[in-house]
């Protein structure tokens, strides 16, 4: 059974022409053996509504340090029993990932021992080396490079290098087109720090799952990437069906 470390719910029609509602994500999970995972949207209250009714589905707090009251909102949703970490999108929201305002969010996560997933792979704010500054400043923070560099091989290689240099950095596979880079990441960074993500509805789970299965990894390592590593990071137990 798969753990998906990167899902979206809600409407993204204006910019991307896609949307996925509560029932849609429920059906996608059922249809692709995704028994658990994390989901996010800038409207955290909507995400709470969705995750409360779908077993196995958990939220990440979408935090935007450019908004007034961002810390209070983050605190509120991190107290929700179905929120397991944070999502940052410095590209869309327009800030540097190592901005002091972000440090305050990371401190919240450190107090709770929760991970943060950061969109990674687009200039100017989400290049792997920019996120590395944050990882170096907070060596105990668990930082996931969402898309592990995304569509550009320079950034993909950069993301793998950053994870290699920083043991607190994890790589998440969604939207990254080169299946062979998943195997390379596991071989170079280690078998526990590469996580499967689908990035629904922007990418299809079938394609994203196939990438991992065709990556050249052994069946045991495929299962580790598709299921165990996400559970270990978010549930603190690689075999768990829910947080311990």
């Amino acid at each position: 059974m798969i753990f998906d470390s990167h899902m979206h719910v809600g409407s993204f029609e204006s910019m991307f022409g896609v949307s996925l509602d509560r029932d849609g994500i429920d059906e996608l999970m059922c249809g692709h053996d995704i028994s658990a995972g994390v989901v996010f949207h800038p409207d955290n209250a909507y995400v709470a509504e969705v995750v409360e009714t779908i077993p196995g589905l958990y939220g990440l707090v979408w935090a935007n340090p450019r908004l007034r009251g961002y810390l209070e909102e983050a605190r509120e949703f991190l107290a929700h029993p179905k929120f397991l970490g944070m999502k940052l999108h410095p590209l869309i929201d327009g800030y540097h990932p190592n901005d002091p305002l972000v440090h305050r969010l990371v401190e919240l996560l450190l107090e709770r021992d929760l991970p943060v997933l950061i969109h990674c792979g687009h200039p100017i704010f989400t290049l792997p080396w920019s996120i590395e500054e944050l990882a170096v400043n907070f060596p105990d923070a668990k930082i996931i490079l969402g898309h592990m560099g995304h569509g550009n091989v320079v950034y993909i290689n950069g993301a793998i290098d950053v994870a290699l240099r920083n043991p607190n950095v994890y790589l998440e596979t969604s939207g990254m087109p080169m299946h062979t880079k998943i195997r390379e990441a596991v071989e170079r960074v280690g078998e526990t720090r590469v996580l499967f993500g689908s990035d629904v509805p922007f990418h299809h789970p079938e394609v994203e799952i196939a990438k991992v299965r065709l990556s050249g990894l052994s069946p045991e390592l495929v299962e580790r990437v598709l299921s165990r590593n996400g559970r270990a990071l978010f549930f603190r137990d690689e075999n768990a069906e829910a947080p311990s």
């Binding site: 409360e52 179905k82 829910a242």
Partner: peptide, 8 residues
């Protein structure tokens, strides 16, 4: 309303 962690 409900809150679900597991299947039930």
């Amino acid at each position: 309303r409900k809150l679900a962690f597991h299947e039930r």
